[in-house]
Amino acid sequence: MLVQQLINGLTLGSVYALIALGYTMVYGIIELINFAHGEIYMLGAYMGIITFGLLTTLHLTFPTSGAALLIMMVMAMLFCGACGITIERLAYRPLRGASRLAPLISALGVSIFLQNFVMLAQGPRDKGFPHLFAGEGIDLFGSRISAIQMFIMATSVLMMAALQLLVHRTKIGKAMRATAQDMQMASLVGIDVDRVISATFLIGSALAGVAGIMVGMYYGLINFFIGYIAGIKAFTAAVLGGIGNIPGAMLGGLLLGLIEALGAGYISSEYKDVFAFAILVLVLIFRPSGLLGKDISRRV
């Protein structure tokens, strides 16, 4: 049972990590707990279903479902990216100089708005996500690991690596890091801060879109409310790993998934979230900035 629970936990953790990556990225730049990030993820999942519906009605059949999946991903990324920058413009940018809590509340408003918009436009009922992923998976020490589980784990690692490269190896990444450190200084040295932040939201939201498709496919079921729990879990994962830190989000996600799986499997499924939070508190007592977060010394 242990191996199976480890597989369960790692997949669940990868799912959390997928969403936490975008969360932590946005946080890293403008220190905003983006409550609406979970909703972007939900929009991505819906965009996947809508694209798939369009493809089938137009009778565009593909030799492999992989092509359909690719198109769905691209559409979801475009759509979520567009939503992300629009939301930033509309709800966060005007609040950039205000107190830290103002954009938090505004993000919450966006989140409530999007949930209800999707409920009204797409209906409140659950929708099945098309099953596009063939492949049987393999047996491992008497436990099963399915193809899609492997695919999800691989995607999350890949996405983390790509993000890490983007932030540390590219010009826009450099601009992002500069903006994160000091927005005013960054704009003084000629960085278009607005543009950098827009780009951050674009990338972070596009990642959420991918997460929406992956998770939708994995569980096969979506509704307008999936962003709520996902958002809280992703936030927890990001903080556990050190919010703002990209490998931290991955580590935090995996850990959270493992804790939940082992807690539910061995102790009690009702209290698993209590264990998860208890461990989070313990970690934060000894490492107040999360596992991989830099210890921000007190500003004097």
Partner: peptide, 14 residues
């Protein structure tokens, strides 16, 4: 289990 959560494999494994 928790309503709204999507992954129930851990408890099912148990």
């Amino acid at each position: 289990i928790t309503q709204g959560e999507k992954d129930h494999r851990p408890v099912l494994t148990a």
